[in-house]
Every structure is written in C-alpha cells, then in structure tokens.
Design a binder for these strands. Structure first.
Length: 423
RNA sequence: GGAGAUAUGCCGGAGCGGCCGAACGGACUUCACUGCUAAUGAAGGGUCGGGCUACAACUCGACCGGGGGUUCAAAUCCCCCUAUCUCCGCCA
C-alpha cells in the first residue's frame, strides 16, 4: 500500500512511478477521486454519529414523559447513521481496493522499462575458462551421485529432485555457511512456518500478479510460501517496533515452494528451476531513512558469499517494470553459468520501503514519539540453486569438483568431490 | 475428534446496557523532596482516522481478540470465526 498522504500531496510522483513500471497511470486519478469520496462520506457519517451520541445523552437525562418522543426521533436518526456508516465503509473499501492496485513508488535512479532494461552495476570475479568441454551441473551432479532428477520425478513429478550424498551435504554446507555469516552480522536466525494464512500472503503482496505462482491448500485455506520473506514480513505484523538500537535483522531458514506456472519448457534440465528448494533469507526492519544504506549492506553481504565461493558474477539494478509490486528497488546478483554461457540469478535483494509494512501495520516509534511505518528489506544469502554455479565453475576435466576453500569446514574438510565410480 | 473455560490498555486485573477510553495495582515519563542510589509525594499518558492546521493546540469519530446482529444507546446481550488453557479420546 502506498502512502495515501503522498497520493494526495504529490500525485505526479505516483504517476511517474507507475509510468516507469509500465503500469496504468489512470489508477492514480481514480485513487485520488476515491480518496476524496471516502473522506466526504466519512465526514458525513462522523457528524451524524456525533449528533447521535448527543441524543443518547439526552435520552438518558430525559424525564419519563419526554422519553418516548425523544426515542422516536433518535430512531429516525439511527437509521440515517446506519445508512451513512454503510456508505462510508463502502467508500473506504473502494479506496482501499484502488489504492492497493498502485504498486510501490520506484526509487529515483531505478532504470525504467522492462526485464531487458536492467543496468549492470559491476562485474566481479573471473569468468571461468576450461581447456576441456565443461559438463553441465546435472551431468556433474549425476557423476557425483549428488542430484537425482529421475527419482524426483518418479516420486513427485517434474521439477522435483533428490539431493543425495555430497549433494545433500553441499546444500547443508552452503546454508550453514550463510547462517554463520548472518550471525556474524548480527542477524537473529529464525526457522519459519512455510504454511501461512491468506492475510499474511496478501499482505506481502504475493497474491497479486504472482498469485498463480503460489501453492494453495483449499481444505485449510493456507498457502505454501515461496520464500521465508512471507513469514518474516508477517512476524511483526500489527506491532510497534523499537528501532532505537538500529535495524532488526532476521535470517530465515526455510524450504520454499513455487508452482512455476507459465514457465513450462524453461530451464527444465536440472535444479535451476524447481518446485521446492531451501533458502536462507535475510530480512530487515529498518528506519525508512536508513533503508537505502541497508540495501547496500545486504548486497555487500551477498557479494561476500559469492566471492568466498569463487563465483564470477555481476550485480544488476533491476528495471522498474521487472520489480515485484512491493519493491521500490531490486538488485539481483547473477553468477556465471559456464555451460549456458550466461549469467543466472542467484540472489535478489529488494528494498520494499514502507509498502509492505503499511499493509501489515508494522510501525516504529520515531524520535518525536510518533509512530510511522518501518521499511522492510529482504535478500537471499544462500539457496539450492547456487549448487549449479558451484559445480559448474569448479569442475575439473575428470568430472570431479574442487570445493571452494570457504566451504570446506562445512563439509568436514572435504577438498574435492569425486565421481562415484572412483571414490 | 468430543466437552468445557477464557480473550480488556506496556503488564497484571476490575467492569450494573447509558455516568467507560475504560476502576485499581505495577511499569514508564515529568516535577518536587532526599547528600547519591533507593524511598516518598504530585502530575501525565494508548492506537487509528477525519476536520482545522505550523505534521502544534483544538475538535470530532472509531477502537475492550476478529466479524456480524439486537437496541435510541453495547466492553457489557445474541450469533459466527479465530487463538489460548483444561479434561477425555486418538496418533506420534
């Protein structure tokens, strides 16, 4: 939800943002009109209500003889109040509905346009070169006995898999390494529910355009989360936080579920795009004034992870039209995947400014003592997909894979993953 | 799965259908007093929104788990939902 005051005082800014996203700017005028109608209806209801409250006092004070007449008057008034209240509620709901359609105000400097209009901020690390024909991650995964897609499909269908042996260990190692980094940076670890109520799913903005991405359990009216961001955002819903000591940082560890509807035929090989995976997610509640600086910190922590793992990558500033509805700016880090000859997204970090918090009623106490919505930010610190880049980048001619040094402590000192036949 | 109880402000805890935004206690803030800490005395507080505006003051409305209803009037009566607790059963 955008700030209704901003809508009222600077509708041009809202329109500009809508344009940058390639969204309809007519909703801004609709929202403006709905806001005015809402306030008018509210004022009418409230003045009638005030009159009714006065009446109540008179009735109570009235003598036996006066009472019947007063009550019959009050009855008539009560009917009008009820009517006005209904209209006010309706106007309120209409405004809410229209205002919800306006996506978060894009931060100045975010490139306008669609998916292909991103700006590359920097490229870091080496693009690996091989003096042999590199194998893709699935071939390597099968050689190592680490990834089993066939049995995944047998048990659960397409886009499901088993991680086994060093594959399973590799994922846990990655997650644990990320957790240690998070702890070192002051994050509180949180293992989150992966089934959430509709309000929470809606509050985080995932039931808008991305509704078809989300698994729903109709029997229980619960949603399977595609990221722990959902539960982490809901964690402090309806609360007033104390941010005097700085931002609240959480690291959510959870399995993530995505339907991948509409991506049939895309990335069907291996574990690049799957229905279920694990992720360690950073989530921060911050003073809006600090949000952009915190966003930079989140990217920096992500980059440290990628660097430690010896992966070549680029950081991109995602274009406005490719942002989720809650994000005001998003940086993706894409790692080089040798057999695809291209960069693929490994992490994503979004600054949602106050958009999510306003929907979920998460506020903080400002210096003046007033409450104001917090800013929320999130970013990936590790996820199953990274295995793709790690295997491919560090492979050797014989199908073995060198374990990046930083990861070795989490694999019991293992330095090389050896193909099964030889190990 | 069955039966019952509870849900009030930062916390504890009252509350007859109008006098309740809500007693009382604690915590907190401010002031006074005490050589400091402590103790004591006094005062003050919530959230959301509208009007008006200097985002002040003022004023109006809403909020007693959530949603409906009854009534001139509901924290107080009725219905539904949710959560928590206790007991029985069932299963890890």
């Amino acid at each position: 939800m955008i700030d209704p005051v901003l809508l009222r005082t600077d509708p041009e800014a809202v329109k500009r943002s809508q344009r940058a996203r390639g969204n309809d700017e007519a909703v801004v005028d609709q929202a403006l009109a709905a806001d005015e109608a809402r306030r008018a209806a509210l004022a009418e209801f409230e003045s009638l209500r005030a009159e009714q409250n006065q009446f109540g006092k008179q009735v109570k004070a009235a003598s036996k003889e006066e009472k019947p007449a007063l009550i019959s008057q009050a009855q008539a008034l009560a009917a009008r109040v009820k009517d006005a209240e209904a209209r006010a509620k309706e106007a309120e709901a209409l405004f809410g509905e229209i205002a919800m359609r306006v996506e978060n105000i894009v931060i100045d400097g975010v490139p306008a346009g669609g998916e292909e209009n991103f700006v590359t901020l920097r490229e870091v690390g080496e693009i690996p070169g091989f003096d042999f024909e590199p194998r893709d991650h699935l071939e390597l995964g099968e050689l190592l006995g680490a990834i089993d897609m066939e049995r995944g499909a047998k048990v659960s269908g397409a886009r499901f898999y088993f991680l086994r042996g060093v594959g399973a260990r590799l994922e846990l190692a990655l997650m644990n390494m990320a957790l240690d980094r998070a702890l070192a940076n002051g994050f509180t670890p949180l293992i989150t529910p992966t089934l959430v109520r509709p309000e929470v799913m809606r509050g985080t903005g995932f039931l808008g355009d991305h509704a078809s991405e989300v698994y729903h359990l109709p029997e229980d009216d619960l949603f399977l989360t595609g990221t722990s961001e959902v539960a982490l955002a809901g964690y402090h819903a309806d609360e007033i936080l104390d941010l005097a000591e700085g931002p609240l940082r959480y690291a959510g560890w959870s399995t993530c579920y995505r339907r991948e509807a509409g991506s049939h035929g895309k990335d069907t090989r291996g574990i690049l795009r799957v229905h279920q995976f694990n992720k360690l997610e950073m989530f921060v509640y911050a003073d809006p004034a600090e949000a952009e600086a915190e966003h930079d910190r989140l990217v920096a922590w992500q980059e440290e992870m990628l660097q430690s793992l010896g992966l070549g990558y680029r950081v991109i500033d995602v274009a406005a039209g490719d942002l989720g509805s809650s994000a005001a700016r998003k940086f993706d880090i894409e790692a080089w995947v040798p057999t695809q000859g291209t960069y693929r997204e490994l992490t994503s970090t979004s600054n949602c400014t106050t958009y999510q918090a306003r929907r979920l009623a998460t506020r903080f106490r400002t210096e003046s003592g007033k409450t104001a919505p917090v800013a929320t930010l999130n970013g990936t610190l590790a996820t199953t997909r990274w295995i793709v880049a790690i295997l491919e980048t560090h492979q050797r001619a014989d199908g073995s894979v060198t374990v990046p040094e930083a990861l070795r402590p989490y694999l019991g000192g293992l330095e090389v993953l050896e193909p099964l036949g030889r190990a």
